[in-house]
Design a protein around this nucleic acid. Structure first.
Length: 332
DNA sequence: TGAAATGATTCGGC
DNA sequence: GCCGAATCATTTCA
């Protein structure tokens, strides 16, 4: 009887279900040890059975299998199963109180979106499109760097492809391990369901729990992949690292505009577009150039006077030439 | 090789 | 959203 108490102690109030066993199964466990149950099973047989259960973990697998078989075919097995059912009914976690579907992890969603945008977690063709868009589009520094950056871009693509490959290999490994572990647990629980009450829904629930635990590994993988992509991007696509001076012609065109509009060196949007077109750079580069020029002109107004005079003379001679040829000065 | 020049970015103000 | 100012990162030049 003590062993029965020890066995059931972790389950909490064991005496009640065991008492209930008396009425529900017809076995009276609490009468004296010499009593014989209605089925003819003596109380020491229960102790014997429980002893076997307790010692099963210390045994070799083959012996354990043998004992398990003995337990399953034991005449008291249905009664024991019934006791466990009643214990479970009283103390087990009620699945109805557990949320069925937890909302997706927002951090995981962000990482997924980023990996998708970077072309890491999408299909190969989509991935390459994303990579191309990222290389050609977001660098956004005009075309003055395009001619000699093709090599860098192919290097960038190669390294991104490497990251993508590592990510997929690791993800596959992770999924394999997760599936293996889940199927192992399912097999184990199904086997155990012969000895203790486990429903299919509870097994599914357990699989869900395991998958959620495993998802932290997935999160870590996605995080480190994102970090690798970020480092790669900053190394290859950082504009400041890729800075090239504008062509001499472009600088001349910008300077001509600046010094011919010295009283108000703020080109309109249309003028910026026109200058961008003439200089073969982007509008934002024109804006940057004028922003820098205004500040640096102001800072070094004495030093830049010579430059100002030079462009003033150039503009004047151009105007004179155009006047002679009957054409008006350029209007941006 | 170090200083100057230059294009881009960031940040606060309007 | 544009601008001035400060700063960064790179290129150019003596």
């Amino acid at each position: 009887m003590d062993q029965m108490h020890q066995l059931c102690a972790p389950y909490g109030a064991v005496l009640t279900p065991l008492t209930a066993l008396s009425s529900s199964t017809g076995y009276n466990l609490y009468e004296n040890a010499h009593d014989v149950q209605p089925t003819g099973v003596k109380r020491y047989e229960i102790n014997d059975m429980l002893q076997k259960i307790m010692s099963i973990v210390n045994e070799r697998l083959d012996d354990a299998q043998e004992r398990k078989h003995a337990f399953n075919s034991h005449s008291m097995q249905p009664a024991f199963f019934q006791v466990l059912c009643e214990i479970k009914e009283k103390i087990a976690i009620n699945l109805r109180h557990l949320p069925e579907d937890e909302p997706s992890d927002p951090q995981l969603m962000r990482l997924d979106n980023m990996l998708m945008a970077e072309g890491v977690s999408s299909s190969s063709s989509t991935a390459m499109n994303a990579v191309n868009a990222s290389v050609n589009g977001t660098s956004g520094h005009g075309n003055n760097v395009d001619s000699d950056s093709a090599l860098d871009h192919s290097d960038y693509r190669a390294k991104l492809a490497q990251i993508r490959q590592i990510y997929h290999v690791e993800l596959e490994k992770y999924e394999q391990h997760c599936n293996d572990f889940c199927s192992h647990v399912v097999t184990l629980l199904r086997e155990q369901s012969q000895a203790r009450p486990i429903t299919a829904r509870e097994i599914d629930r357990m699989v869900d729990i395991i998958r959620k635990k495993f998802s932290s590994i997935q999160l870590q993988l996605k995080q480190s992949t994102c970090e690798a992509v970020m480092i790669l991007r900053s190394r290859f696509l950082d504009a400041r690292r890729k800075r090239r001076n504008f062509s001499k012609t472009a600088t001349e065109v910008l300077n001509e505009y600046f010094y011919s509009h010295l009283s108000n060196p703020y080109p309109s949007e249309d003028a910026k577009e026109e200058l961008a077109r003439k200089c073969a750079i982007s509008v934002s580069q024109v804006s940057n150039w004028f922003g820098n020029k205004r500040i640096r002109y102001k800072k070094n107004i004495g030093k830049t006077q010579e430059e100002a005079n030079m462009y003033a003379a150039k503009i004047a001679s151009q105007a004179a030439r155009q006047g002679r040829s009957g054409r008006e000065s350029p209007d941006y």
